[in-house]
Each structure stands twice: as structure tokens, then as C-alpha cells.
């Protein structure tokens, strides 16, 4: 587990991170969410050692992070980049050797990765000669080339077509499933919601919320239910402790303090008409995000 504790960082007189603390658990996908300029990239750079923190500490399984730890992280920066005019396999080997791999090992692993990622084109082609989708595969290969023990990816899905998104997803989930911690930032909250086990939300460099998506829902808003019946549901507004959020004749979405209160609504509905559906409503992360960043 990687733990960030009270990380502070300023650029000039502008403080961009304020006492930021959160965990990246082993074998879990942690989504890192925040508006533009909220400090996500800075946090990731500090985690990788590309930037230094002004104060605070980072630990790996309880001990302070070392360069060897950092070297075992696979990193994909937000603005992707490799050498456009260098052969694909050569740059993978070059990057791997900074992590202490021998040329032979690096080349073997690079070729395997490109094969698995289904690169269309020769490994000896220059990067600029293959299309964007394939360049993206090479970028993923670059993050995995040194057989990392953790992954940190800054906006791995931005600018990808649906096929590429699925491909990247498959790589990330299989990687996390092997027991490694994975942290990635994304603006695509629907994706984050589908994908992540844990969410870390920051705003203006401050931690707003951290935990599993379920925990966040429980903490941040009262649970909601939807109810669909044959008859008009106007009477729901009169039930004590119930807040109607959305109403459309025979359909209603309401918030209730607990499930007993919600079930009372269901019982009453059954008395007046037949019920075609009754279900807890999952608040989309999108709305949760709006709530927590605006509150």
C-alpha cells in the first residue's frame, strides 16, 4: 500500500497542495478525481519523485518511499510523449534500461508487450509512422516495460476512442488483479465509477473525500429510491421524512433517511395500486462529485 501523508507543495507563492493525505491500496483501482488545476498532476509527479514536496511524507507498506520503490512504478504522464522519430522497440529498451534491465531482457519484454497489446506495425517502425491508436499502445507498453509493481496513470483515457478505452481498461484491471496498487486520474466520471474500487476527490489541492464509492455515497447524501406504479404518485410528497427529488406522474425518485422509511412508502404504494418497480437509486459519481466539490 502506498500512503501519502500531509503533502504540501507551492509554486512561487501559490500553494497548490494542502496537507493532502490518502492511500492507494494493493490490488485495487483508485480513481483520482478533481477539476482542472486541482493538483492531480502535481500530486502524481510528487509521488513519482519528478517534483519534490515541500513537506509531508510518502510511505510504501509503512516505510518511507525510496528511489527503488519509485523506479518500480509504471508511469504514464497526462501529456503523452515518446520520441517521435525513434524506432518503437528502441525507445522501450531505452526506458527499461533506466530501471536496470539489461538490453536483452528489455528487448524480449518489449516485444512480448507489443505482441500482447496487439501493435499493428513493426516494432522497428518509428513511433510517428504508426497511427494514434497504436502510439497509445506503445505508451502503455512504456509504462509496463520494466515490470512495475504499481501503476500511476494521469488521464489514461483522455483522447481515446472506445476500443482503445476498453483495451486500456483491460490492461489496468488485469494489472490490479495481480495485487498491485493502481492510481489513475480521470475526468470521465462514468468510467471512474464503472472501474474503480476507491475514489479520491480533491479540490483546490485539498482532500474532499476518499474511500470506496459506496462509502462516499453513504457519507455524502441520504440514500435514494425509485418507485414506479400504475397510479399517480402525488401523495408521496405528503409522507413525513421523505424528500421527493424527481417526480413524473407514476414515477418518483425520493430520498429517505433509512430503508424502513422507504419501505413504508412501498407498502402504501402497494395499497393504492400495483407496483412495477421499486429499487435503490445509485447516485452517479458525477453528481456526487458536483456535490462534494461545491459544498
Amino acid at each position: 500500500m502506498i500512503t501519502l501523508e500531509n503533502i504540501n507543495r507551492s509554486f512561487g507563492d501559490k500553494q497548490v497542495l494542502h496537507d493532502l493525505s490518502f492511500d492507494i491500496a494493493d490490488g485495487r483501482m483508485t480513481g483520482f478525481v478533481g477539476s482542472n488545476g486541482s493538483g492531480k498532476t502535481t500530486t502524481m509527479r510528487i509521488l513519482l519523485g519528478v517534483l519534490a514536496a515541500d513537506s509531508g511524507r510518502i510511505t510504501v507498506d509503512g516505510t518511507a518511499i525510496t528511489p527503488a520503490h519509485r523506479s518500480a512504478i509504471g508511469y504514464m504522464p497526462e501529456e503523452r510523449g515518446l520520441y517521435p522519430k525513434m524506432p518503437i522497440i528502441d525507445q522501450l529498451v531505452y526506458l527499461a534500461r533506466f530501471h536496470g534491465l539489461s538490453r536483452q531482457t528489455a528487448k524480449k519484454r518489449g516485444l512480448e508487450l507489443l505482441e500482447e497489446l496487439d501493435l499493428k506495425g513493426e516494432p522497428t517502425d518509428t513511433l510517428e509512422s504508426v497511427n494514434l491508436g497504436n502510439q497509445q499502445k506503445v505508451q502503455i507498453a512504456a509504462a509496463l516495460i520494466h515490470d512495475p509493481e504499481a501503476l500511476v496513470l494521469d488521464e489514461p483515457f483522455s483522447g481515446l476512442d472506445p476500443t482503445a478505452v476498453e483495451r486500456t481498461l483491460a490492461v489496468l484491471t488485469s494489472f490490479a488483479a495481480s495485487g498491485a496498487p493502481v492510481l489513475f486520474s480521470s475526468h470521465q466520471l462514468d468510467l471512474v465509477e464503472r472501474l474503480v474500487d476507491d475514489v479520491v476527490i480533491i479540490n483546490d489541492g485539498r482532500l474532499i473525500a476518499a474511500g470506496t464509492t459506496d462509502e462516499l455515497r453513504r457519507e455524502r447524501s441520504s440514500p435514494e429510491w425509485t418507485l414506479q406504479t400504475d397510479a399517480d404518485m402525488g401523495w408521496v410528497r405528503e409522507v413525513p421524512d421523505i424528500t421527493v427529488i424527481e417526480f413524473d406522474g407514476n414515477w418518483v425518485r425520493f430520498a429517505a433517511p433509512d430503508s424502513t422509511t422507504a419501505e413504508a412508502v412501498l407498502r402504501k404504494a402497494l395499497d393504492v395500486s400495483s407496483v412495477s418497480s421499486f429499487a435503490p437509486h445509485i447516485v452517479p459519481l458525477n453528481r456526487l462529485f458536483q456535490e462534494v466539490t461545491q459544498s
Partner: peptide, 22 residues
């Protein structure tokens, strides 16, 4: 695409030293 083989192995890589990196 097979993703099983993308899992990590136990061979943790070591960061290349200053002179090696140069």
C-alpha cells in the same frame, strides 16, 4: 488480446545508477 501475461513478476527492477544512466 490476452491480458493474463501482463501481470507483474517478482523480478523487481532496480533503478540504474548515476553513471550508468548518464
Amino acid at each position: 488480446m490476452s491480458t493474463e501475461t501482463l501481470t507483474r513478476t517478482d523480478s523487481a527492477a532496480n533503478r540504474a545508477g548515476f553513471t550508468t544512466a548518464i
